[in-house]
């Protein structure tokens, strides 16, 4: 009896994972080529950039914020990386510049929100628009071509059959999970999102914590921009449109509370895989793009609904 109860608790805790597995099984039955190794590799590649963005987003949301600007930041950082990645400099230069550009946007967001007391939605909506403009100005509106073969290999190469992109994502997941779960800083991020006032009277420098979460999101968006350029082999000022929404969706589907203070890293991983698998599965089945949107929307809402119902049963 007790054993069964324990299993029930376990299932309800990890319900979104159960939903994910169910979806994989359904897709495999509908289209067996879904489960082929080459397609699994595809899924890993396709999940990686959104995954990295989702982890940055997770820091912001857990600390009680919200970041609309990451898509634009990816494009801006990607353009800079493409311009510097033509083979004239060692690869570290475009990487560092892209990440610094992302960091700068993130810090600007953080200062606006934590010091200027602007609502995160407004502040990051502003940077979203402005940074997209910056990307267009810097690139002159044209795609930036001519990146070096070495730079292209950053995303295209594999290690033991696993795409490097997936390995970068794995590294980011490990670092972020560690920071959130084990460090004092991580604990304080949760505290800020859980109850900002309480965190402040407990002696936490909430301003710095909130700025830093936006900075992390920006930094990871910069990294994503660098990888994005390598993956698509060009720097595009219009790239990564609405990527912030995919990142937010991955977080929310993965159980990160929009009101802050709640969320587990593995949930974000599952959330991110879930939306990638939906898109990949529908592509494989040849579902028309118009229907894909309807199905994607429905699956996301249903998954979260079932998750909430599954959890409330426990109590």
């Amino acid at each position: 009896m007790k054993e069964r109860k324990r299993i029930n608790t376990l299932i309800s805790e990890y319900f979104i994972f159960v939903i994910f597995i169910a979806l994989v099984i359904v897709l495999t039955c509908l289209k067996p080529s879904f489960i082929t190794p080459s397609n699994l590799v595809n899924i890993l590649k396709q999940a990686s950039i959104n995954g990295i963005l989702a982890f940055g987003m997770m820091f912001v949301i857990v600390a009680g914020g919200f970041d609309m600007s990451v898509g634009s930041t990816v494009a801006f950082a990607g353009i800079l990386a493409a311009m510097l990645g033509q083979g004239n400099y060692p690869l570290i230069v475009p990487l560092v510049v892209a990440m610094l550009a992302g960091l700068a946007v993130g810090i600007a967001n953080g200062i606006g929100v934590a010091v200027g007391n602007l609502p995160p939605f407004i502040m990051t909506l502003g940077t979203m628009t402005a940074v997209r403009g910056l990307a267009l100005v810097v690139s002159g509106g044209k795609p930036v071509i001519g990146i070096s073969a070495q730079y292209k290999a950053v995303a295209a190469s594999t290690f033991c059959g696993i795409p490097m992109l997936a390995i970068y994502l794995a590294v980011i997941i490990v670092i972020c999970s560690f920071v959130l779960a084990k460090t004092v800083y991580g604990r304080r991020v949760y505290a800020c999102g859980g109850n900002l006032l309480a965190a402040r009277v407990s002696g936490i420098n909430t301003t710095m914590i909130r700025i830093s979460t936006f900075a992390i999101a920006g930094l990871l968006a910069g990294l994503s921009g660098f990888l994005m350029t390598s993956r698509v082999t060009i720097g595009q000022p219009t790239a990564a449109e609405s990527y912030e929404m995919d990142a937010i969706t991955a977080c929310v589907v993965g159980g990160v509370s929009m009101s802050g203070g709640v969320g587990k890293p593995w949930g974000v991983v599952v959330g991110c895989l879930l939306i990638t698998v939906i898109a990949n599965g529908l592509d494989i089945m040849g579902v028309s793009s118009h229907w894909q949107r309807i199905v994607k929307g429905a699956i996301i809402v249903l998954a979260v609904l079932i998750d909430i119902k599954g959890k409330s049963k426990k109590n």
């Binding site: 505290a191 859980g194 006032l197 309480a198 009277v201 407990s202």
Partner: peptide, 10 residues
């Protein structure tokens, strides 16, 4: 001022 989503020890 409790942080409702955190554990007692936290």
């Amino acid at each position: 001022n409790p942080i409702l989503d955190m554990a007692v020890y936290e």
